[in-house]
Amino acid sequence: MALPDLTLSLQFGRFDGVAEHRAALPRHFVRRCMRHALDADAEITVRIVDAEEGQALNRDYRGRDYATNVLTFDYATEPVVMADLVLCAPVVAAEAKQLGKPLAAHYAHLLVHGTLHAQGWDHETSEADADAMEARETAILAGLGEPDPYADPRA
């Protein structure tokens, strides 16, 4: 079965430590993670930002005044998925360290997570929806050879 097509724009803001994030996110890796999470062709921009930009976007668009790991802006078009994913590098790095996971593995999870959001998946609507989304993420990541994002790697 062929994977959906993905037109990808991958952008990196200017921030301290950007080289580490570029190294963890080669274009082919980003495309692979996202295409496995897609159910339809897509045009998606992925932007890696600093904490200041991440916080401003979260505050301005979600009313939450803090930097979060991933924001998904879904433009609800069919049959092509159109979206922007914004990943906050310092938050992703801190979470990866706290979870004891390689940076690339945590990015893989968040890319899949954000891509699912772009297609209407939502973990904040109900516990059942959260369970379904987590199961879908885990299955996609397993297919990519990535670990279960909800398992503690230190256990």
Score class of each variant (00 low, 15 high):
E95Y: 12
D65S: 06
A105N: 09
A67T: 00
F73S: 06
R62Q: 11
D16L: 04
L10E: 13
Y75C: 07
D65W: 08
L3D: 01
Y75F: 15
M133L: 10
F12T: 07
A56W: 06
D16A: 06
A96H: 15
D5A: 15
A128N: 13
A2V: 07
A132R: 08
R47G: 11
E53Y: 03
T77F: 10
I44T: 05
Y150I: 14
Y75W: 13
D60R: 13
A89H: 05
D16Q: 05
P79F: 01
P90V: 02
A83H: 04
Q119H: 02
V112L: 13
R47H: 09
P4F: 12
M82R: 14
A132C: 07
K97D: 11
L103R: 01
T115Y: 01
A118W: 03
A51W: 11
V81N: 04
F73P: 10
A40T: 13
R32M: 12
R27Y: 01
Q11C: 03
R31Q: 15
Q119F: 06
V49C: 05
E52N: 02
L57Y: 00
G114Q: 03
A51R: 14
Y66H: 14
H36N: 09
G13F: 00
E137W: 07
W121G: 05
A105S: 15
D122Y: 02
D50W: 01
G100V: 14
Y75N: 11
V30D: 00
P147L: 10
P149H: 11
A40M: 09
S9N: 05
P149Q: 07
L103W: 11
R27W: 00
H36C: 05
D50Y: 00
S9W: 00
T7V: 09
G54F: 02
F29H: 15
S9Q: 09
R35Q: 05
D129E: 08
H117F: 09
N58Y: 03
H106C: 11
T77H: 12
M34I: 06
R14Q: 00
G17W: 03
A108V: 14
L87A: 12
H123P: 01
L103Q: 08
A76W: 11
R22I: 10
Y75P: 09
L8V: 09
D152P: 06
F12I: 09
M133K: 07
P90F: 02
L71M: 12
V86I: 14
M82A: 08
E95Q: 12
T7R: 10
A139E: 05
A96M: 13
N69A: 15
A132P: 04
R136H: 04
G63I: 00
A37C: 06
A42R: 03
T125Q: 09
A132Q: 08
A94I: 05
I48K: 06
T7K: 09
L87M: 15
R31K: 15
L116R: 04
H28V: 13
K97Q: 10
A2H: 02
A108Q: 11
A67L: 01
R154Y: 10
D5L: 13
I44G: 06
E78D: 07
